[in-house]
Design a protein around this nucleic acid. Sequence first.
DNA 1: TAGATTGTTAATCGATTAACAATC
DNA 2: TAGATTGTTAATCGATTAACAATC
Lengths: 218, 218
Amino acid sequence: MANSGKNISSAVIKRLPRYFRYLGALKARNITRISSKELSEQMMVTASQIRQDLNNFGGFGQQGYGYNVDNLYTEIGKILGLDKRNDMIIVGAGNLGQALANYQSFNEDYGYKVMALFDVNPKLIGISVRGVKVLDTDELENFIKTHGIKIAALTIPKDQAPAIAKKMAEWGIKGFWNFAPIDLHLPDNVTVENVHLAESLMTLTYNVHNREEQEQEQ
Amino acid sequence: MANSGKNISSAVIKRLPRYFRYLGALKARNITRISSKELSEQMMVTASQIRQDLNNFGGFGQQGYGYNVDNLYTEIGKILGLDKRNDMIIVGAGNLGQALANYQSFNEDYGYKVMALFDVNPKLIGISVRGVKVLDTDELENFIKTHGIKIAALTIPKDQAPAIAKKMAEWGIKGFWNFAPIDLHLPDNVTVENVHLAESLMTLTYNVHNREEQEQEQ
DNA sequence: TAGATTGTTAATCGATTAACAATC
DNA sequence: TAGATTGTTAATCGATTAACAATC
């Protein structure tokens, strides 16, 4: 187990993939060691924060030396569960669902495997996206159970999302990557990661208009 | 001006679109008033937080009554800049770019207008996505300048993103909705809203594996 | 060994929550 | 008016940063 049951704050967890990304880039440049100070300058965070964050999971560094890039990359990958089998399905084979299925990087770089897409639209059922079949939503229960799927992307209209998510949780889904613009209420042992695109765009809009105003004030 | 130059924390800003969404839902149900307490129960946040957040921008409520749903919806929309003209372009007309262009809701519900997509791929240049043309990236400078575009979604490979974003900022883009898995470094008057899908998926994976572990411990 | 840098404790800062007087 | 609920101040909580002894 990566951490001994200690509860890590979600602020820390959300930063881990970014560390992972920077370490991957360092690795690609054949850099073998890095200090928290150097990394902090690249990432524009404090060195303290990096050391604090990492030490939630154990001491990965060495005094006087810093961190071994390769090792730290692997360790953070383990913490994130990327060493485990991460089969997933995509429910909703519309534009967004297909775009996710097409995004190679999840598979090639991080080992996620899209096992199937699902849709109710007869025009979509049967087609393949990057070699992955679109199945009828009727087959969801069977597929989740027989393949032991734990992770599902939800790219369906918001009206349908809560009901189908509830069912899917009963069938065994433990993590929803939710793109529907609605909040899902599910049992405690199920986790939801929201990607609320419209909300993200709105915060951008706020900042765009607000920085303009600030400039005008000066 | 929505706020008199006061600097609002980004934690607050990121919550506004969610308030906006819940108020929109209440409006759709013809509910005319709501107290911070009722809203807090629906949204699963504290009533204190709602009142604190809103009072950064002025007193929208009335003692003994609560908030007028319609009015508060409109006011938050104004704060977010949704009353202003929000023309945007999408740079990168691959799967994700097209999926964004196809997402009606930005336009119909919130008034964003996708003016054009851009790509370097000759197979894509000239096609239309939901009535919006895909143009050659060569035309970017001219298009941004003549249409006064401020907002751009970046859905291009990460290697190309930093260079093109730099150029686009010079040409007038003030806000990037960045889907490329890389951090953009741009002048202070330019704002970047990142949608790092892979990172979001990784935090989900962490939580999925971690809650399993917690259950096993019990 | 001396220098560098971690791991970790202590201090600070900011965000959230509680409380309540103001007032509709 | 009495009851309800805001706006806002004060208290608490948690997250970030600073500092430094430990140690490679």
